[in-house]
């Protein structure tokens, strides 16, 4: 294995990892705050792709066939607001009424939400894959012999910008402080006069918006979207969140990068048909060895 090939694998891994990271962040945020595994999160990513698709189709006449990065970013921001709102509504309608219900009920609700979103899209857009009306250029450059397209580079930069932005929100703003506080002790927060419901809503908004951004980017990059596209990436994002330590945001990004790299190397080693088996097998192995994740703290869940 020569060095250029190795570098190419690393770049591929980082690129895929940045997608996983954006979705994993939402997973991890929601889990961190209300200990809910939002199965529908992968489908929010799918909704992002479809919102982008719809917006681009509407605006196709204005934009023309070849979208610039700036147009794509604008579309992405609108799609983020849309998916964020959908996430917020989802929490309001499906999860909030069950805040104090048994965990099993909540998990089943999340499965139901995932189903409803997937087949809701299948009903309204048809079950066949859709082709994104715009494509991104294929121009590429080489660094040390590895090939990277400008589109890939741009997307990785956008992903990094969003992640840094989220990190700043969570660490610097009042909302972020409230989120961290709720993840520590929701009861105490209620007593301290924090509007817990609104903070949870905001968390769903932000997490869903990030997934939506990833959806638009993947639609534009891969060119094809379908209503089940969120299923596997939801699982992968969860894997990433677990590897990093679920509930830990920097961990989620780290886990996503690790997973991206693992997949990249695993694919090179075993062939792409084994990629998903490799990833989920690794998840099971990882849970056996270190269930708290790379950056997670020991969780004592007791009386």
């Amino acid at each position: 294995m020569d060095l250029e090939y190795l570098l190419q694998l690393i770049l591929n891994g980082l690129f895929v990892g940045s997608f996983y990271g954006l979705v994993a962040l939402g997973y991890s945020m929601v889990y961190g705050i209300i200990k809910l595994l939002n199965f529908a999160h992968g489908d929010i990513y799918m909704l992002g792709a479809f919102s982008g698709y719809t917006l681009l189709t509407i605006g196709a006449g204005v934009i023309g066939g070849q979208a610039s990065i700036i147009v794509l970013v604008v579309i992405m921001l609108i799609a983020m607001v849309l998916t964020g709102t959908i996430g917020l509504i989802l929490e309001r309608v499906a999860y909030r009424p069950l805040r104090s219900a048994p965990r099993l009920s909540v998990l089943i609700t999340a499965v139901g939400a995932s189903f409803a979103l997937e087949y809701g899209i299948a009903v309204s857009f048809g079950p066949n894959p859709r082709v994104y009306p715009v494509g991104l250029g294929n121009e590429s450059f080489t660094i040390f012999g590895a090939r990277l397209t400008y589109a890939q580079l741009a997307m990785m930069l956008i992903a990094v910008a969003l992640m840094v932005g989220l990190d700043q929100i969570v660490r610097r703003t009042r909302s972020g402080r409230a989120m961290r506080a709720i993840s520590q002790d929701p009861k105490a927060c209620l007593l301290m006069g924090i509007n817990v419901d609104s903070v949870i809503s905001r968390t769903f908004f932000v997490g869903s918006a990030l997934a939506g951004a990833a959806g638009v980017m993947s639609g534009a990059y891969y060119g094809k979207i379908d209503f089940l596209m969120g299923f596997i990436i939801g699982l992968k994002a969860f894997t990433a969140a677990v590897i990093g330590g679920i509930g830990n945001l920097r961990g989620a990004v780290l886990g996503a990068i690790v997973l991206g790299l693992l997949e990249s190397f695993g694919t090179a080693w075993l062939g792409s048909e084994w990629r998903d088996v490799f990833a989920f097998g690794f998840l099971i192995l990882f849970l056996t060895v270190r269930p708290t994740g790379l950056l997670g703290e020991r969780v004592t869940e007791r009386v």
């Binding site: 309608v93 499906a94 009424p97 069950l98 219900a101 048994p102 009920s105 909540v106 089943i108 609700t109 499965v111 139901g112 939400a113 995932s114 189903f115 409803a116 979103l117 997937e118 087949y119 809701g120 299948a122 009903v123 079950p127």
Partner: peptide, 20 residues
């Protein structure tokens, strides 16, 4: 089929909220 699955999804949520 797709309508059916959509209804299943909604039904799961409704069941859990109103008749777990």
């Amino acid at each position: 089929e797709n309508w059916r699955y959509f209804v299943f999804g909604v039904l799961l949520i409704v069941l859990m909220i109103f008749r777990p």
